[in-house]
Design a protein around this nucleic acid. Structure first.
Length: 477
RNA sequence: GCCCCCAUCGUCUAGAGGCCUAGGACGCCACCCUUUCAAGGUGGUAGCACGGGUUCAAAUCCCGUUGGGGGUACCA
């Protein structure tokens, strides 16, 4: 079997495309696992020269690789095959299965206006026109009977052929259009499984008719008479308004999610659960388990909303469960590119300890920066509202002052400081949870963050005292 | 308009006629734990769109209604 992912490089890889790629990839891996010959093909559909840009191709390739969706064949560029596309179209004309059309867009619109019809009216179908510059080649859709196929996720679908328009194969400049190029390539490249978004359902009827027509062309050529692939149309991914995710309207590129500090493995896992779920309801699945359990027949039919909150949850789990060494590596890589922190100011040991403290308390890698900034910055800024909330309470002031004094003589160790602060707090009737607040704020500029005493150890006695001093002085004003 | 597709908590889903008083997860709320936060624990919130059939029995099958989506390009 052979499945393919066939994006057009008109933008970043978006989450819907990534899921399509994933499902294709999964069925290929599954086939391989059960000992069948199977191949995953990457084909770049760059026939729309006006909208395609080479840099998008690179972005798509990078994103796929980051997700671990490696391919066995390709990337094949559709643009490299236009000669073949054209020739096939011309052959169809010779076989009287296609015709030249002189109608402009305006002609068609004019004829349709006032009437309740849309689309091409087969005006030139019976005109037997010879080619002239600017003419488009249209496919002669058979006007009798219906076209039907079995969709692996949707079951049997069909359409009356008369409701299909005579679609264009070659544009006026003779460049091939999607349906033609797609069909010819899937045929030539031996694609057996076409898994794509539901927006292509309607195209599939055209593709089937075209496939059959091309098959009839060269009856002597066995390679042209390939059986139709198995089709599967996945439910669309929609935004909160329940509309198809669009690159223009919605921020949905996987690259962007990586920039926001989401892990590819979390993304992959989450994507798999959009439109599909394993029988046992398990949500966190390894790639291996995914391959094992995934089945196109179990894919849902209704559109799915891409919920970043749930992605967040998945990301949190993947970060927490990550081997600490791997986490350090990934976090550092991320921070180097996406943060303004000067990590050189910290020793390697400190960085290691800090990241260990941070790992269990973040959802995305982007949260690290604001959580550890106080280790690096020379001075911490205390937001006014937090200052007021904390230090307008005289008890908190006193706790800070007492702690500062106690610090001078006591042993500067995690356990000792813990004991000291706890007893100071208790003398004011406050539990440690409460009494650490004024200290935390003075040292970190925030009321939340990594564990306090561990942080103090990394900060060191001098900085700790200095920061407490700064706040203490403000009490005198 | 026409064609096609779809319909279980707010969201993602489990559910293939009796196991459903509909299960899990995210979110939200409460409590517990706790060195703040996070994590964890316990409990709670909330759903089979509606109406007809079929059947001893329907979330599950059929029809209709309503609602949603996709397509309707010399884009892909």
């Amino acid at each position: 079997m052979k499945a393919r992912f066939a994006p057009s490089p008109t933008g970043y890889l978006h989450v819907g495309g990534a899921r399509t790629a994933l499902f294709n990839w999964l069925i290929v891996q599954k086939a391989k696992r059960s000992g069948n010959e199977a191949s995953f093909l990457l084909r770049i559909e760059d026939t729309d020269t006006e909208r395609n840009k080479p840099e998008w191709t690179q972005g798509i390739v990078d994103s796929l690789l980051a997700l671990g969706l490696n391919w066995d064949e390709g990337p094949i560029f559709q643009s490299s095959r236009v000669t073949k596309h054209k020739q096939t179209a011309l052959d169809l004309f010779d076989a009287n299965l296609a015709y030249w059309c002189q109608c402009t867009k305006e002609d068609i619109e004019n004829r349709n206006s006032g009437k309740n019809t849309v689309g091409y009216d087969r005006h030139c179908r019976s005109l037997n026109l010879k080619y002239e510059t600017g003419y488009a080649l249209r496919f002669k859709v058979p006007l009798e009977s219906a076209t039907k196929f079995h969709d692996s996720v949707r079951g049997d679908v069909q359409i009356e052929n008369t409701t299909l328009e005579d679609f264009v194969l070659l544009k006026g400049n003779l460049s091939p259009l999607f349906v033609l190029a797609n069909t010819v390539d899937d045929m030539d490249l031996g694609v057996t499984h076409v898994v794509r978004g539901e927006e292509h359902l309607y195209n599939t009827f055209k593709i089937i008719l075209l496939w059959e027509a091309i098959s009839k062309l060269n009856d002597s050529n066995a390679t042209e008479r390939r059986p139709l692939p198995t089709f599967a149309h996945l439910p669309l991914l929609v935004n909160e308004k329940r509309q198809k995710l669009s690159k223009r309207r919605d921020k949905v590129s996987v690259e962007e999610f990586f920039d926001m500090g989401f892990l590819p493995e979390a993304m992959l896992n989450y994507l798999a659960l959009l439109g599909w779920g394993p029988k046992n309801n398990q949500e966190i699945l390894s790639v291996d388990e995914l391959i094992d359990q995934f089945d196109l027949n179990d894919v849902n039919l209704a559109p799915a909303f891409f919920d970043i909150q749930k992605l967040n949850h998945f990301n949190n789990i993947y970060i927490r469960d990550m081997d600490i060494e791997l986490f350090r590596h990934r976090a550092l890589d991320y921070l180097k590119i996406h943060s303004g922190l000067n990590l050189n100011k910290l020793s390697d040991t400190d960085i290691n300890e800090i990241l260990e403290l941070v790992q269990p308390r973040i959802n995305t890698l982007s949260e690290i920066e604001k959580m550890i900034g106080f280790f690096i910055e020379d001075e911490v800024a205390i937001p006014q509202d937090l200052y007021d909330k904390t230090y307008l309470d005289p008890t908190n002031k006193q706790i800070l002052l007492n702690f500062k004094d106690a610090l001078k003589d006591c042993e500067f160790s995690k356990d000792e400081l813990h004991k000291v602060l706890e007893s100071i707090g208790l003398s004011f009737g406050k539990k440690l949870g409460k009494s650490q607040a004024p200290i935390r704020l003075a040292l970190t500029g925030s009321n939340v963050g990594p564990p306090l005493f561990e942080s103090l150890m990394i900060l060191g006695k001098d900085k700790t005292l200095a920061r407490l001093d700064i706040v203490a002085k403000t009490f005198l004003e």
